[in-house]
Design a protein around this nucleic acid. Sequence first.
RNA 1: CGCGGAGUAGAGCAGUGGUAGCUCGUCAGGCUCAUAACCUGAAGGUCGCAGGUUCGAUCCCUGCCUCCGCAACCA
Length: 684
Amino acid sequence: MSYKRTLITSALPYANGPVHIGHLAGVYIPADIYTRYLRLKGEKVIHVGGSDEHGVPVTIRARKEGITVQQVVDRYHNLIKDSFEKFGISFDIYSRTTSSIHHKFASDFFRHLYDNNKFIEQTTEQFYDEETNEFLTDRNIRGECPYCHSQGAYGDQCEKCGRTLSPDELINPYNAINGNSLTKKSTSHWYLPLDQYQEWLQKWILEEHKEWRPNVYGQCKSWLDGGLKPRAVTRDLDWGIPVPVEGAEGKVLYVWFDAPIGYISNTKELCDAQPEKYGKWETWWKDPDTRLIHFIGKDNIVFHCIVFPSMLKADGSYILPDNVPSNEFLNLEGDKISTSRNWAVWLNEYLEDFPGKQDVLRYVLTANAPETKDNDFTWSDFQARNNNELVAIYGNFINRALVLTNKYFNGQVPAQGTLTDYDKQTIEEFVNIKTQLEDLLNNFHFRDAQKEAMNLARIGNKYLAETEPWKLAKTDLQRTGTILNLSLQIAANLSIAFEPFLPFSSAKLRKMLLMDDVKWDRLGAIDILPQEHTLGTAELLFEKIEDAAIQAQLDRLARIKKENQLAAWQAPEIKKPTTIDEFDKMDIRVGTVLECQKVKKSDKLLQFKIDDGMGGRTILSGIAQSYPNPEELVGKQILFIANFPPRKMMGIESQGMILSAVNADNKLVVTTVSNKVQNGAQVG
RNA sequence: CGCGGAGUAGAGCAGUGGUAGCUCGUCAGGCUCAUAACCUGAAGGUCGCAGGUUCGAUCCCUGCCUCCGCAACCA
């Protein structure tokens, strides 16, 4: 397969929140590694990205926060763009779907298909809110479930009984956002008849792209086997790109129709701005010598492999994706990453907490990339990979080589004398690194490729350990020089090999080596640094990350988890009906805590001494785990049941039961009175 | 319900119809130039469960279990 240029796209992040490590691991780091790799090889390549700013969720968010939709997308577009820049995600252009170029382009794209009869028009009855003048999506309609009759079932599914529903089945449907009741209104939309592309897609994907990753291929096969149906490409909304057809007021292009067109319009924006550098946008999208690669997450497979190619095919003048490397998902500390639950490591926050450590996150996310299945990100793994791999293996090797050179050769590259058999054996181990890396990178195996690069540092450490130049320096300075020369050549190789993965560190290393140029072709060579070349100032390539920094992150997550638990809490169901007579049998009293301490050898029991106004009593209560400092209860007036029969626990007699509330986190909270009352006062 | 992906050493992950691998962690030894880093070696697995095909299955087939996605502000 030969090609002249490569067009790389990264999934457009939705401008409804900051980006997090899942986005980075799933899409942007692999895309960036691949882009940097091709650039390093001197190939023609552009990397196109941008924010997806249409669709319903941004409008909901704006309404919730009382700001305009434009303000929402501006805020997050800028935040996202800034995060990408700081992490070195090297886009040639990062634009947005609200740009005027995109609006015009997407509009023209639609119109062109429309004029060529590529759409079918269908009229359906849909639920409508007369007050807000809007049609509702299935998910925003709620009502009574027709099967289990629970309230609040969604238009697509009942949470209670799990049945799949359609909005028509709901009893008394209402708007989930404002509670308004709904009426039915007919509306017409344009559909892309995917069924007409079925046969063509089957041949194109199932026969001609068997090399796609199993998850991608399998997902496509599943959709194709199920039979494709026409898919709506317009929506009744006021936020988006107006449908460029007479009489289509109030309708916009469906966000999934306009977003991928953003890849094209952003390319156009780039090329129009710098035609001398990038040429014509059509070259990137219509010349069969261009190779198109989409980097996406697994939730986007169907749109990039089925829908968008069908759109391009419908137009007829575009090339199609050559590969769609899709990653699975990254979890965080065992739980699914979630924007709404704030369960994420946000890039903007990471940059504040770990300034200058972008490469550490890049390294960890690549080392543990979810290439074949969902993976887990943990902070302890993050720390371990930094301290044990980046610092101990890579950084340490560089430091050893430089310190030794400074010590014995005043920071000048010594001459490479006669090579011993062991030298040759070592060279043999990494001379093929270029081919190995290329094989892995060409096939999108970034995790393995990075491991291969790290292996070079291991080879370096081993070489120093075996040859022991610090000993030889006393007897044979010439041999010492050869060893250090070779070590420095390995260091120079490392800066090239890691360039796609850890661009900031590679630049830093080149500065330390005063190595001005980096060429992929030189990878594997042992004469990158010339004899007597003067090295720059040595500094540490990576720094250790202390436990305290990791603990701070874990504490933050624990706090969020607790907040979520409280937010998600629902009151338990009311018990069976009882009577006032039953209640009256309980003699509930107020008493003041005189003493409170843990019962020895018990995990759960606290021993209370209570002033009950009748000479005092001892009560045991199983709440020790909720009160690590029991003395804080001393002096409080609490409620207790006074007429339970005494009961021995852990050898102590308990004369009653203290009343506690069970909180959302299952912690028990002792009940008390709002004003001071006499001890022994009755409650009823 | 269905469809797709996944389940392999304490942790995180590769891999293959024929002796099960990598990184980290653990343990032992070596080294001391280096950010107490580095090097060598060892221990540690009925490859989710149950059947089947095969001379032989972790791999292929069937069934089941669990997790994730398709499908709620998600890459």
